[in-house]
Design a protein around this nucleic acid. Sequence first.
DNA 1: CGCTAATGTTATCGTCGTAT
DNA 2: ATACGACGATAACATTAGCG
Length: 207
Amino acid sequence: MSINFLQGRWIYKVRVRKGNALDVTEQELMKRAKEGQQDALEQIFRYHIDSAIRLAYLITRNWATAEDAVQEAFLQVFRSLASFQDDRPFKPWFTKIVVNKAKRTKDRLDRGYLPYDMEEVNPHRIYSPEEHALDKEGVDALFQAINELDDIHRLPLLLKYVSGLTEAEIAETLGIPASRVKSRLYVARQRLKKRTELEGGGRDDDV
DNA sequence: CGCTAATGTTATCGTCGTAT
DNA sequence: ATACGACGATAACATTAGCG
């Protein structure tokens, strides 16, 4: 079976055509993908790629390796198509794969197997609609504060506000009870609020 | 407008680390 | 050994948003 649209730097070709709304459900597209319709899978990828890269970046803190992690995640999706249950939502399943790939990549970064450039220029700096509501300085300060959270509290926050997962989907993605997700989100928000208040002189940033 | 699901907040309890 | 505080998990309740 050919996977030519996944080869080379396809990821960039997909990105420039981003933003297409899906006109059929993801379950339907996954069903078609399982039947061998590559354009169905590509349509799903195109729909999710930006949020996937942003999520991977916020885990790895490195754009180049975020891209690698997402590309690996897409390959993993392709390899695992057969194991995907048709009645399950695609996004939590896919997000779980992205998180795992990004974590693995981050481990390699932390161990020094990969170069770590915190000052790199972001080649994918596309603010989400929410980000447009804030000035760049505010967004950077917010991401800085998020980055300083521990993984336990940061991940649920990223999955909710970057990937747009519901609490139930986050629970499924992370394999923890929904009540724990709720608690971690609350604690994370409290810490962010505290930090942004400290840094912003009491400015009331909504999270 | 009322119902329901999703989300946010709070109180309480358990666990773990640390100081004495 | 134990008292204490910090922190996280859980459950219950409150609030909000979406929908018919």
